[in-house]
Design a binder for these strands. Structure first.
Lengths: 122, 122
DNA sequence: CTTGCCTTTGACATCGATGTGAGCGTTTAG
DNA sequence: CTAAACGCTCACATCGATGTCAAAGGCAAG
């Protein structure tokens, strides 16, 4: 499939797909005329990239982790594993931070609700 | 206290504190010579702002929510409550997304680990 | 062949929080 | 009084993912 179809299937813009490739997150074969060709596997790969990007990982970080799927090399795998574990830690503390923020928000909501109820008494 | 001390206590740069004020997240009184003056309450307030910013909220969003603490007004409170609930929803789905990303990452780690173990057999 | 849609590369724009530096006033310690 | 350290405002720079536009080539249907 060409870039337009991959874009449609994944929801990533053509621009983003080219950017992913430029950053080394995505590989494509080229037709004789230079157009990018993808197969079905790429759909899943893009979904993974989107998920990680949405999780706040930089493309640089993803580039260290994901290529080990395509280029299974012993040293690269070790390096990727290190990056992944590191990123897992970062992700977990981000999650903890968000949960804490949500709790703080809940307290604010509660204060606010109480305030409104008290006002309603007037 | 002046801006330097608030910065030291919160870890937010002076630049950021001025920016928060400019965005309406933080209020300060001014000394006769125009310098910003804060009291202890501001430390907590800044901590809350930092927490929400780190949770990916825009300063605009925070500006809709937080001022209801300083300016308790009925209409404003209602509007803030709406914003807060909306933001809580967004936050929750972000958290879900991050957790899903972490699970995907865990699977990648596992694949990678297995690969390394198999290689070690050679 | 022509028309219309798709693709390519390259460049420039955007957004939001923050860094940085200039030029100038304020406060405080010696 | 002076110097150091702090504060003020204004303006420009940064980063990363993406949008957008331009000039050009590719491909399928009439």
């Amino acid at each position: 499939m060409r870039i337009g179809e991959l874009s449609a299937r994944t929801g990533a813009s053509r621009r983003s797909l080219r950017y992913y490739e430029q950053q080394g997150l995505l590989v494509s074969t080229r037709s004789p005329s230079g157009q990018r060709c993808y197969d079905d596997d790429h759909v899943q790969r893009v979904a993974l990239i989107q998920m990680f990007l949405a999780a706040g990982m930089s493309s640089r970080t993803i580039a260290e982790m994901v290529p080990c799927m395509t280029e299974p090399n012993m040293d690269r795998a070790r390096q990727a594993l290190t990056a992944m574990n590191q990123e897992r830690t970062r992700l977990s503390s981000t999650i903890d931070g968000l949960i804490a923020a949500r709790e703080a928000l809940d307290r604010l909501i509660d204060v606010n609700r109480t305030f409104l109820v008290n006002m309603a008494d007037d």
